[in-house]
Nucleic acid binder design. Structure first.
Length: 605
RNA sequence: GGGGUGGUAGUUAAGUUGGUUAUAACGCCGGCCUGUCACGCCGGAGGCCGCGGGUUCAAGUCCCGUCCACCCCGCCA
């Protein structure tokens, strides 16, 4: 008596059979996706990762299999042997296997299933927390299976392209020395060194620079990174990067490799030919035009700067504008930014909807949303700035190119907030009125980032990281005007998402010292924190640079997924918990004692 | 740290100015059915209305607190 698995081996997956297979005896393994019991004749849809095949049980084919089939329920795991038959006129055009069906001669029930907590089909829209709790079942859904098949292809393509470019794949530690600054680290207590901690690596940054000193010349790694920061739709506490570093290069060399990687991915995964080189956009232009350092370039509608117009008219009779520009603070000079929504698009927004946008921007931290609909002769209607003198209004109309029917939005004050608000408004409105074209891939390099930014205390901190090289032409201002110094850093942006970021590093000791000094890091401090890197750099470090691409975000975009959680097998919730395994969890006092850790300051419940 | 949305049957949702026994669809269970593929027909079971307090004659509904999930700002060198 032949047995399933041992003697009866799988011959096809459930997506493989076609009309040409009619007459063949086949063996399929999979799960019952649905059952249609007609009494004398039972149909099941059998599902595995390859697809779905209809299996038919009839007494005349096998009385035994037919009898057993009435016990089948959703998600039973079964094996089927049978004969492929044509469905003739009754074919199902919705299935790739719809031309055929398998008439079952032998049925094995490998395991039964409780009633699933949610339906497994793609159209099922169960609450995400329930899906995450039963993640193995959730991952059975064809749409998620497709995502992970695609993600697997990303690994293969990345390795193929980078290996072809002479990169070595080398691993770096996860348990690393804690380095302050930047993202919060997860800490791991050391049992063997009581009271001391490792950090989980937030990136392999320093190690890959050591690889360059070592002379590996080109390194890459598909590597997990850990950051203990608040989560977003496109941010998980552990995530995967395609990380690389190259010696003897300038910006374009790194960018060219990444472009080749992107070309390979889009070709292999989507069959799409991406055109290179990608366009370049300076950071200050990205911020000024789109209010974002990761602009969505699939549509236009840029912001405009009307600071000088308002300054010329000293507020033009609008007190809040005058005050906004006269405010003095430690931060950057205040600005007045506008966003023109042309009449054709503005017509899609009712006055009520425009009023509602004020609530939207207040949620982003704006005080309000100054706005106007442009009427005949350039008049501003429905505007809270009724006091505006006509002279300034006319200048604003000219500066922003305003025409009848347009809607004009204004933000003023600190540039960072004004840009955040108008940049977000631009995206929000574009999505709302449906002008973001689907199926477009707008890649761009954002370059010339500032080397430093102001921390909360007004002190300078490195924007990228303190090993990022300043631009040569700005080097002379490192001491006199550090805030104006630009970095040799670059981000790759796609449709409003940052998908990679990197820089050319500092390889000269004198420049490194000057950068440390600019951020208030003494030689001793630097030695304490990064001594191992600085030591290595005393022995002939090559000029080098690199980049890291967010593999999860790439997968999300390539899959067309809405969330990182749909391309990560076991993602964390927004609070960083894993609903499937219930991590994190409490540990015993014995475990804590061994690590010399005491818990304090917790509310006892 | 801040703002917002949501939580009602296994699942997805409805539930009016607070007022009889909390609805529906899908799923589930039983029966019938040999061409379904969202199978169909008949019958049935299934509820801590997230949790805790309060107001009230009366709370799914109003108030306060809290937990969880999601979206955003801050944060993410």
């Amino acid at each position: 008596m032949p047995e399933f698995l041992k003697d009866i081996k799988r011959t096809h997956d459930c997506g493989a059979l076609r009309g040409g297979d009619v007459g063949a005896t086949v063996v399929l393994f999979g799960w019952v996706a649905s059952r249609r019991d007609h009494g004398g004749c039972v149909f099941i849809d059998l599902r595995d990762r390859g697809g779905i095949t209809q299996v038919v049980f009839e007494p005349q084919t096998s009385a035994e299999a037919h009898a057993l089939s009435s016990e089948l329920r959703s998600e039973f795991c079964v094996g089927v042997r049978g004969v492929v038959r044509s469905r003739g006129e009754r074919k199902n055009p919705n299935l790739p296997t719809g031309e055929i069906e398998v008439h079952c001669t032998d049925l094995a029930v490998f395991s039964r299933s409780d009633t699933p907590p949610f339906e497994i089909g793609d159209d099922a829209n169960a609450n995400e927390s329930i899906r995450l709790k039963h993640r193995a079942l959730d991952l059975r859904r064809p749409s998620l299976q497709k995502n992970f098949l695609l993600r697997s292809q990303i690994y293969q393509t990345a390795r193929r392209v980078l290996t072809a470019h002479k990169f070595l794949e080398i691993e770096t530690p996860f348990l690393v020395k804690y380095t302050p600054g930047g993202a919060r680290n997860f800490l791991v207590p050391s049992r063997l060194s009581p009271g001391q901690f490792y950090a989980l690596a937030e990136s392999p940054q320093l190690f890959k620079q050591l690889f360059m000193v070592a002379g590996f010349d080109r390194y890459f790694q598909i590597v997990r990174c850990f950051r203990d920061e608040d989560l977003r739709q496109d941010r998980q506490p552990e995530f995967t990067q395609i990380d690389l570093e190259m010696s003897f290069v300038v910006e374009e060399d790194v960018q060219t490799v990444v472009e080749a990687l992107i070309v390979g991915l889009w070709k292999d995964v989507l069959g799409i030919d991406v055109v290179t080189p990608f366009s370049r956009l300076a950071y200050k232009d990205a911020m000024s035009l789109y209010g974002s350092d990761k602009p969505d370039l699939r549509f236009g509608l840029p912001l405009c700067d009307v600071t000088e117009v308002v300054r010329k008219h000293d507020g033009g009779g609008v007190e809040m504008l005058r005050q906004a520009l006269s405010a003095k603070g430690a931060g950057e000079a205040p600005v007045v930014k506008g966003w023109r929504l042309p009449a054709a698009e503005a017509a899609k927004l009712s006055n009520v909807e425009i009023d509602k946008l004020e609530e939207f921007v207040k949620g982003l931290g704006a005080r309000g949303l100054a706005r106007a609909r442009i009427g005949a002769g350039g008049a501003w209607t429905r505007s809270p700035m009724k006091a505006m003198r006509e002279a300034m209004r006319n200048d604003l109309n000219a500066a922003a190119g305003l025409q009848e029917g347009d809607v004009f939005f204004l933000q003023f004050g600190a540039p960072k907030l004004a840009h955040t608000v108008l940049g977000a408004l631009r995206l929000h409105v574009a999505n709302k009125i449906g002008i973001v074209p689907a199926g477009q891939w707008k890649f761009a390099w954002v370059t010339e980032f500032p080397l430093f930014e102001r921390g909360d205390d007004g002190k300078l901190v490195a924007s990228h990281h303190p090993f990022t090289s300043p631009m040569a032409e700005d080097l002379e201002r490192l001491e006199s005007d550090p805030a104006s110094v630009r970095a040799r850093a670059y981000d790759l942006v796609l449709n409003g998402n940052e998908i990679a970021g990197g820089s050319i590093r500092i390889h000269r000791g004198d420049v490194q010292s000057r950068v440390f000094r600019a951020i208030g890091l003494s030689d001793e401090d630097a030695r304490q924190k990064f001594g191992f890197l600085l030591d290595a750099f005393r022995h002939g470090p090559p000029p080098h640079g690199g980049i890291a691409a967010g593999l999860d975000r790439l997968a999300m975009l390539l899959c067309g997924a809405d969330s990182l959680r749909d391309v990560i097998a076991f993602p964390k919730t927004q609070k960083g918990t894993d609903l499937c395994t219930d991590a994190p969890s409490a540990v015993t006092n014995k475990q804590l004692d061994e690590l010399h850790i005491a818990l304090v300051g917790l509310d006892s419940k």
